[in-house]
Structure formats: structure tokens, C-alpha cells
Design a protein around this nucleic acid. Structure first.
Length: 104
DNA sequence: GGAGTGACGCGGC
DNA sequence: AGCCGCGCCACTC
């Protein structure tokens, strides 16, 4: 178990400011493994053990809520984003490029 | 120990 | 411009 990898992912995702979103590829690249975007998603799957990790702020590079189905409710992810000020229409983040956040 | 899967991304047709 | 297929890494069966 590469807990380091998970820890890095969680730490990074946790740094995503409220009202902002990020992508799996961005996170993967930030940890130094741009090809591990899939693993980032997998890490999110286990993120349920990390309540401080706003997995709902992480979407694919298209800004689509591909992982919403993995949440408690299919609308939980969208609801959380909307609550933070992120408008989502048809599982698509509006003005995604502007909302996209990258680590400093 | 080997094969299959997945909340992705990029390249090719 | 849109659709199809391959690769990558970690994890599970």
C-alpha cells in the first residue's frame, strides 16, 4: 500500500479552496505522477475514510462529475458543489476552466 | 502468481 | 469536430 501516494493526494485535495474545483490529472501531476490520474480517482474511492478530503471538488479534466455515482447520493456531489457556489448543470461544472484550481 | 478493473488522460482515425 | 482505442498505476479477485 503506497499510503504516501494516498496521503499526498488527500493532502492536496484538502488544499482545494472552497468554491473551487480541481481535476484528477492536475492532482496526479502535482504529486509527480501525471500518469497516475486513475489512481487518484481510486484514492478518492477510499477517501470516505478522510472526511476532510472534499472529493466532490475533484472532477475529470472535462469538468464532468463522473464520480458522483460513488457518493452517498447521486446528487450529493452536485449539491455540495452548488452549495459552495459552483454551478453544475447536467453533471457539468459551469465555467469549469475558471473554477479549476491548481496547487501553488 | 496472473488477469481484470477503474471517480482518467492523451493520441490516433 | 467527433468517435475509438491504448497506456498508466494501484488494488482486488
Amino acid at each position: 500500500m503506497q499510503d504516501d501516494f494516498y496521503d499526498k493526494v488527500y493532502a492536496l485535495v484538502r488544499q482545494i479552496p472552497r468554491g473551487r474545483v480541481s481535476t484528477y490529472g492536475t492532482i496526479a501531476r502535482a504529486i509527480g505522477s501525471p500518469q497516475s490520474a486513475r489512481v487518484v480517482g481510486y484514492a478518492m474511492n477510499n477517501a470516505h475514510s478522510h472526511p476532510e478530503v472534499p472529493a466532490h471538488r475533484v472532477v475529470n479534466r472535462n469538468g464532468q462529475l463522473t464520480g458522483k455515482h460513488h457518493f452517498s447520493s447521486s446528487d450529493a456531489m452536485q449539491n455540495l458543489l452548488e452549495e459552495e457556489g459552483v454551478r453544475v448543470v447536467d453533471d457539468q461544472v459551469q465555467e469549469f476552466e475558471s473554477r479549476c484550481w491548481s496547487p501553488s
